[in-house]
Design a protein around this nucleic acid. Sequence first.
DNA 1: ATTTATTTTTAGATTTGTCTAAATTTTATT
DNA 2: AATAAAATTTAGACAAATCTAAAAATAAAT
Lengths: 228, 228
Amino acid sequence: MYNFEKNIKMTSLTEEDYIKAIYKLYRIKNKPVSTNAIAEVMEIKPSSVTDMIKKLSAKGFLEYEKYKGVSITEKGKKKALQIIRKHRLWEFFLVEKLNFKWDEIHVIAEQLEHIDSDELIDKLEGYLNYPKFDPHGDPIPDKHGNITHHKDFTVFDLEEGKQAVILGLKTDNADLLKFLDTHQIKLQDTLKVLAKNKFDNSVSIEINGKQINFTEKTAKNIYVKTIK
Amino acid sequence: MYNFEKNIKMTSLTEEDYIKAIYKLYRIKNKPVSTNAIAEVMEIKPSSVTDMIKKLSAKGFLEYEKYKGVSITEKGKKKALQIIRKHRLWEFFLVEKLNFKWDEIHVIAEQLEHIDSDELIDKLEGYLNYPKFDPHGDPIPDKHGNITHHKDFTVFDLEEGKQAVILGLKTDNADLLKFLDTHQIKLQDTLKVLAKNKFDNSVSIEINGKQINFTEKTAKNIYVKTIK
DNA sequence: ATTTATTTTTAGATTTGTCTAAATTTTATT
DNA sequence: AATAAAATTTAGACAAATCTAAAAATAAAT
Ligand SMILES: [Mn+2]
Ligand SMILES: [Mn+2]
Ligand SMILES: [Mn+2]
Ligand SMILES: [Mn+2]
């Protein structure tokens, strides 16, 4: 009953969240990430970030040059992909097995991703039948950290008249997900761009027989691939 | 993607481990628990315990009188049973769905028990079909904290010649579990006490057609009920 | 009833992760 | 190129959870 069995994790929950955030920022910009950018997405102060990136560089997860921003090392990338893998597998579990809705799972997965057990995550993956995408359409890295990212091509990038299929979402933000639910929009749905509105940069689309106007922000958060 | 969505838990992982340990100690002794006893099961120093029990008393989980030990309040008991509920439901999940062996699950459940989401645990319970006992035979509290404990009656308490069924284990210790595996002993197996050995307090039993000698320590960790 | 041993608490230090305020460096603007 | 603005780092403080060493209280033994 009383085996607290010292949980000797090599990375703290906090460090893991930093590594993940920095990995994601670095991946989209593909150049050193600024202290402020990290502080912003993590909702903490830049001075805290400075301390932590020093520590994570010392541990070999990041490469850091004072005042020049940080990039992620191979070691850091591997760690980040492990955490992302766990996050997305747990999200899949929550939706497929426990019947959560896709806007309810991110916060829970944010905790579950830090559970430390390789065996657990590998067995979970098998139990779920090796899913390739999470409920938001994001690809799930395999146990070696291999992953194929979505092309950075969104509804906003479509030209008028083009047809496309929804592949995934750039964010797990619950409000976006609820908005899509409201309009019965799901992954794999087909849409057609009716008009790109110059005035406010919104995009008018037709989807499932209905017409909807996406704001620029919304349009830029939905990954698509064109068809035919 | 970047919603760290501040995890505002009312109790830290550490506080939860204290509350659980103190609840368990108080339950078996049914009188104030000593600082040293807590330090011992948690494998930390008594001075650390003193600090924490002050804090947990201030928060209303414990009742503490200097130099007189601590007891658990109703609020503390409720919190402890919530954590125990989570621990045991996750253990059940790990064995039944992910095919872990019963000696591998405790350490993982020790982490999972701190995941903060009532909805998660209630859905998990439903998914598992409302199990009443965990893989070690320990009862799982319901969502209101109701639980029926095993009577404190072990193999060691059986008289010579008595037959009994194994109900559960007092500890999740992996070494005990592996020992039982080695001899193919499972929950619900029937055993018969062949002899109680005065010399070393060991107990000779017959189980599944085989004969085995339990040390006092082992015998005292196996809950049983007599039959006929 | 003293003395001794044990238990418990206090005092002070340490590590982790955060903050504010000030100093420094880099970047942008005149 | 000098100045202003923005970004980044440093310095110092704080809360949480732990530790060691010393002091105080309680319990046990003479
Ligand atoms: Mn997280
Ligand atoms: Mn997702
Ligand atoms: Mn725990
Ligand atoms: Mn158990």
